Simulated assay, not measured.
Amino acid sequence: MKLLELIKEAEARKVAIGHFNISDLAGLNAIIRAAKDLGVPVVVGVSEGEEKFIGRKTAVALIRSLREEYGYPVFLNADHSHSFERVREVVEAGFDSVIFDASKLSFEENVRQTKEVVEWVKSKYPDVIVEGELGYIGSASEVQKEIPAGAAIREEDLTSPEQAKEFVEKTGVEMLAPAVGNIHGIIVAPGFEERLNIGRIRAIREAVSVPLVLHGASGLPDQDFREAIQAGINLIHINTEIRVAWRKGVEEGLRANPDEVAPYKILPKAENAVYEVVKRRLELFGKL
């Protein structure tokens, strides 16, 4: 099945598909192993920085080889593309989906640029999914001591159902990532607790005809995930949580083998740490 078909199937079952970013083979192996162990589809994402580190064509080749070797539903997404040029490059390279993120711009400019991207992609690569983002939620997948400047956290700044409907209709995006209380990264600012506005998710889903995507999901409480999926979230992005797990795993591997210099003897700890996070999240998203 194609990715969009799987997402719509997940919507019908009131579950969500997991999206996890990678920077190396340890992370990729962990994600694929967890998805295969649970028997669920999975989306692997690379941001602009991750893509530059791994290599655009290398990322495509890795996912294709895994899909062909195992006959497994794993897909590659270009996470947060901020320019038409990047969209063109990843789509031509063979990515399955792309997120065009103009969320920091005005509503009108976001619509204009996103519409241009959708029209170009669908005219040349109709099977590639184009996702749009409406509402700024920060951009850094890291542990942060302050709320990102300009991030939509007040209720009046969240994506409205009316704007979501207009955005989808005018741009033609096939999936929408709204701002509903979510923020990129894990925020450890004193007194701040990241919580989703479930009512807003439900209202947006009722207003639009496309699946909803939750970005910036690292660190959210499990109950928020359960309620968000029930309200209409169909695809969930996790990155910071697995980055934190990866680092802890590397540190553990180095402590356990202080004189070791072979990466393949150190990194299994990182892979296993990422595996546990991914498996736990996939179980939650899929009600397993």
Rank of each mutant, 00 (worst) to 15 (best):
M1C: 01
A10T: 04
V15N: 04
G18T: 08
G18Q: 05
N21W: 05
G27K: 03
N29A: 11
I31L: 07
I32D: 08
R33S: 13
R33I: 02
A35V: 10
D37H: 09
L38W: 11
G39L: 08
V42H: 11
V44C: 07
G45C: 10
V46K: 04
G49S: 15
E50H: 13
K57N: 15
A59E: 10
S65T: 14
E69D: 15
E69T: 15
G71I: 13
P73H: 15
V74P: 12
L76C: 10
L76I: 08
H82G: 12
S83W: 08
R86F: 05
R86Q: 14
V87K: 08
R88Q: 15
G94L: 04
F95T: 12
F95V: 08
D96S: 07
V98W: 09
A102W: 04
K104R: 14
L105F: 08
L105R: 10
S106P: 05
S106L: 02
F107D: 04
N110R: 01
N110D: 02
V111G: 05
V121L: 02
K122Y: 04
S123H: 00
D127Q: 11
V128Y: 09
V130E: 10
V130F: 09
G132H: 03
I137L: 12
G138R: 13
S139G: 15
E146Y: 14
I147F: 12
P148R: 11
I153S: 11
E155D: 13
Q163D: 15
K165V: 01
V168N: 03
E174A: 07
E174K: 04
M175K: 09
M175Q: 12
A177M: 03
A179C: 05
V180I: 14
V180P: 05
I187P: 15
P190I: 11
G191H: 13
F192N: 14
I198L: 09
R202M: 04
V208I: 08
S209P: 05
P211R: 06
L212I: 06
L214I: 11
H215C: 07
A217H: 11
L220V: 12
Q223W: 09
F225I: 10
Q230D: 14
N234Q: 12
A245M: 00
A245Y: 00
G249F: 00
E252V: 00
R255D: 11
A262T: 03
P263R: 02
I266S: 03
I266P: 02
K269N: 02
A270H: 00
E271K: 00
N272Q: 02
A273I: 00
V277H: 03
V277L: 02
V277W: 02
V278A: 03
L288Y: 06
